[in-house]
Design a protein around this nucleic acid. Structure first.
Lengths: 223, 223
DNA sequence: AAAATATCTTGAATAAATTTTAAAATCATG
DNA sequence: CATGATTTTAAAATTTATTCAAGATATTTT
């Protein structure tokens, strides 16, 4: 879940954005106007900010500049389609991207995701109690620590970060070992075997999540 | 939305390209220099790469060659107007196109669009609720997963991607098995039979879509 | 620097699933 | 209704995955 701050002078627009984002991995706080927005920012930490450009109290660029004085939080500017040109110039002032009204829901979410991704690498993934934490080099399930080797840890991390996607053995070797590796496919199976055992041992339903895709590779199920 | 990787040794150029592309259907990741670029490629999948030719660490062609060792992602080379000649030779090394500085915004986008169109494979098709997804190696109907074998999956994918077109058994063998296959036509029937059963079982009206063209082959109906 | 330990890689045996084949039954078409 | 094409069926052949053990590498400890 990511915390979004919406800043706009129109109540209606705040409602609309909130409604759009609710079904996704975003939780909105609504600020009516620039000043209220700046207040919130001082008190609370946000993952991303959606900021209207045309506001009466203070224009969006001014707000953007103020935020940038003390924070690198990603900012996406919101503008009417017609003012596109101005924005391209304005982006140099520190915003990360912009989006035009009326919104395309998919585009909005895609741009927000992208902005987040640019600023925040994925170092943690959690799935039904199984927690992968890159910073600590630790995989754990309900507070039980699972001791993995580096290869095992990298493989499961890659899969968990990309649920649903199948990786062939060759792809895994490229991504985990590096593209110049001479290691052959069967080696992956060995690591997979050891990893499966270790993770099953702590009671995690490994087979419901980590699956062999016959003739293709392995994948982590998207729930 | 398409993910672009920009590789250049000048911060300024990265910013400029990013600004140009933002208003379009492109999201940029900026890599300062060849090594950083290669790092990103290892970690992330991109739809297209914009690669500067003149870089200190490693020249663009070298980077291009390295990428081509394991990926078919479209690559567009970026060069100063004066070095045009060299480029034409160099394109043989695996790049898809090139563009000269200073940029014409429209041309840049047009060339990128064209490169994508040429190389971007279709990885998803949907027909009346039946979804074929190559990345996930999954066929599903109304959230029911249909377990297919690799051959079955390839056959139905090919047909669904080419609705209305009839494929003879020989054509299917060439396209799915590869042109050097010795497999004979009757084998296709076997796979077709198994596939039909599996897909009917989840309630999809298979026979309305997948049809035998008597004396010729099989086709997927175009709606 | 040597020894101890852990990890990685490989090959071979076994198990599992898919692919192919062949033959019988069915079907579509003139 | 005769003919050739398709579908069905079942079993054999082949391919792919898993497991296991042992040797090679790499890392840590002494």
């Amino acid at each position: 879940m990511n915390k979004v701050l919406l800043i706009d002078d129109e109540e209606r627009m705040l409602e609309l954005l909130d409604l759009y984002l609710r079904p996704y991995h975003y939780i909105c706080r609504k600020a009516l106007g620039a000043n209220e927005g700046l207040e919130y920012i001082k008190e609370e930490r946000f993952d991303i900010i959606l900021l209207d450009i045309m506001m009466p109290e203070m224009d969006g660029w001014e707000v953007c500049r103020k935020i940038r004085e003390y924070s690198d939080v990603p900012i996406i500017m919101v503008t009417a389609r017609e003012q596109k040109e101005d924005v391209v110039k304005g982006l140099k002032l520190g915003a990360d991207d912009y989006i035009t009204k009326p919104f395309d829901e998919a585009e909005l979410v895609a741009r927000m995701d992208a902005a987040l991704r640019r600023t925040k690498p994925v170092n943690q993934v959690e799935m039904d109690g199984l927690l992968w934490d890159k910073d600590q080099f630790e995989l754990s399930y309900r507070n039980q620590y699972i001791k993995l080797t580096p290869k095992e840890f990298a493989i499961i991390g890659l899969l968990m970060k990309n649920p649903g996607r199948v990786f062939s053995r060759d792809q895994l070797i490229d991504l985990v070992w590096g593209i110049h590796s001479e290691t052959e496919g069967r080696t992956v199976d060995s690591h997979v075997r050891n990893m499966r055992e270790k993770i099953r041992d702590v009671g995690f339903p490994m087979d419901d999540y980590f699956q062999t895709v016959w003739g293709v590779g392995y994948k982590w199920i998207k729930k």
